[in-house]
Amino acid sequence: MAASLAPERRALVPSGVSGMSRAERLCVATGVFLCLSGLVHLVVFLVDGGPWYGPVSWRKPVTFGLSFGLTLIAVTWVTSYLRIGARRRAALLVVFAADCVVEVAGITLQAWRRVPSHLNTETPFDTAVAMTLAVGGGVLVVVLSAFAAAAFRRRPGGPPGMVLALRSGFAILMVALLSGAAMIARGVVLSRTGHQQAAYDSTASLKPLHGVSLHAVLVLPALVLLLARTSWSEVARQRVLYAAVGAYAAAVLVAGIRVGLTW
């Protein structure tokens, strides 16, 4: 009973750091660390220079550090509104946090070694790193799909509009996961058939779709909380939220059409 009531309490009264569970504090701290890692590597890029794009660049530890850090913090926050058992949620969050660290660490390591991180099978070590990142991607899909299923299985808690924001955010997040899996799958096929450079180039068309759809699960729930602090009527807040969801969906659709035209 206590676990089922937790989302309602947390939706109405911000708990702050002191009210977080141990798993939540661990995940938020890890997310902050990953974001700092991304910012540090941005400084490294500014000092060291080199290309921003391409399979070997400082862009990858920057963008992956920031993206994984923000996503981990966002997922830790938004899943507090889900009606899911406390132990199950904590276990999923810890696995997700560990996987985020492994992904960013592998990408960062290869950036410092000045070799590609994904789809790189040039040496046994590079192959091991690439396979670890691929398996880690599979773990991400499983964990986030479990949270998405929980969002649709039982009505989440939170202020008015949070149900739509969470379900829309997780649905769009699934697009990000599928596009990421498609990038890896296509690249692996090309790599194993002897087209290594084509494997690296093949991910370019899917990156905008992947990037656009990745953070809806943070943006839309955050918008709900911002709207809840305004003096606008519920109807006005609802219209703004509907417009935001529609705009996000349209952006994902446009990115998807671009993929279809270049795939």
Rank of each mutant, 00 (worst) to 15 (best):
L93A: 01
S18D: 14
R114T: 04
A247S: 09
G50F: 08
S233K: 05
Y81Q: 09
R258N: 13
G161Q: 05
A222S: 14
V141D: 03
V175E: 01
R154M: 02
A23M: 09
P7D: 01
G16P: 12
S233V: 08
V62A: 03
F152I: 02
V28L: 14
A255K: 00
S18F: 05
R114M: 13
G158R: 07
T108G: 04
T127W: 10
V219T: 07
A128F: 12
V135T: 05
L241A: 04
G38M: 00
M20C: 10
S15A: 15
V44T: 09
G85V: 05
L253F: 13
A111Y: 05
V163Q: 11
H215T: 04
A148R: 04
V139C: 03
V175Q: 03
A204I: 11
R167P: 10
R9P: 06
A228W: 00
D201Y: 03
Q110A: 01
V40K: 07
T123C: 03
W77F: 14
R154S: 12
T193S: 15
A149K: 00
V94E: 08
A11R: 10
S117C: 07
G138T: 04
V175C: 09
V254K: 06
V189T: 08
I257G: 11
G16H: 10
V217T: 09
L72G: 02
V163T: 14
T108H: 01
G211C: 00
R237V: 04
S67M: 01
A247N: 07
A181C: 06
A111P: 04
L223K: 06
A150T: 02
G69C: 06
T71V: 13
A171G: 13
M174E: 08
A165H: 03
E122C: 06
A185M: 12
M1W: 14
P159D: 09
L241H: 02
W112R: 09
L82S: 04
G50Y: 05
G194Q: 10
L93C: 03
L144C: 10
L261K: 03
V102L: 15
V28C: 13
T127A: 15
V259A: 04
W52Y: 11
R87W: 10
A216S: 09
V188A: 13
L206Y: 14
M131G: 06
H41V: 02
L12I: 03
A11Q: 07
R239P: 07
S57W: 06
A216R: 01
N120Y: 12
V40A: 15
G49K: 08
T132S: 13
E122L: 11
V212S: 00
